[in-house]
């Protein structure tokens, strides 16, 4: 009903451009696959976020605990499940998590009221998520953490300093410099 009409002010409880662009990309890929095959008329796809009660939470410090997350996020409703994002290799927190509520409304409220506020003195990011699946708790970066922590040029104390790839590179340079002398 009212949702169909565009509000005079933007809504904060919509999926981010990140989510939408990923979705678009996937659709393109699928279209490529289908080339040559007969095109089935695109039925209006069911929105996977229609009843989403899960949020992806990003930009956490590596040191932020489950209890802290729980403390903040339960302000929007009882939490059903909390899954910490882990480094694929070390199994240590790597700065993101999934928070699952019991209801879709709680998740939307969280987008509106908590996304973009601070936890553990960092501005955190929330995004609606179609739901947690096993495996998604691990970082997908080369060295085990999140991709964004590979090449980050700014020093971020809460997230392991410089990007790991950059750190590795610097170390290598240093070693070589030593040898050259």
């Amino acid at each position: 009903m009212p949702a169909a009409v565009r509000n005079t002010v933007d809504r904060l409880d919509k999926p981010s451009a990140y989510y939408q662009s990923r979705n678009k990309k996937r659709k393109y890929d699928r279209d490529d696959d289908r080339e040559g095959r007969e095109k089935t008329p695109e039925e209006p796809a069911e929105d996977p976020l229609k009843d989403a009660a899960t949020l992806y939470v990003g930009n956490l410090s590596f040191y932020t605990t489950e209890e802290q997350i729980h403390e903040l996020f339960s302000k929007c409703g009882e939490i059903k499940r909390l899954i910490m994002g882990l480094d694929r290799f070390n199994k240590t927190p790597c700065g993101f998590c999934f928070v699952e509520y019991y209801t879709h409304q709680d998740a939307l409220d969280c987008m509106k009221y908590i996304g973009g506020t601070k936890l553990d003195e960092r501005i955190i990011r929330t995004d609606l998520d179609p739901g947690f699946q096993e495996g998604r708790q691990y970082g997908r970066g080369k060295s085990g953490g999140q991709v964004r922590d590979e090449y980050r040029e700014e020093y971020d104390e809460g997230r392991g300093g410089l990007g790991r790839a950059i750190q590795a590179e610097r170390q290598k340079e240093e070693e070589e410099y030593g040898k050259g002398r």
Partner: peptide, 29 residues
């Protein structure tokens, strides 16, 4: 007021010209 999604071009694109930016929000065109 905040009618961002209708903005045809980059809007106030000036402040986020870092292409490696990992955060994409509605402002990001």
């Amino acid at each position: 007021m905040a009618d961002y999604d209708q903005r045809p071009r980059g809007g106030r694109g000036g402040y986020n010209n870092n292409r490696k930016r990992r955060y994409r929000d509605e402002d990001d065109y």
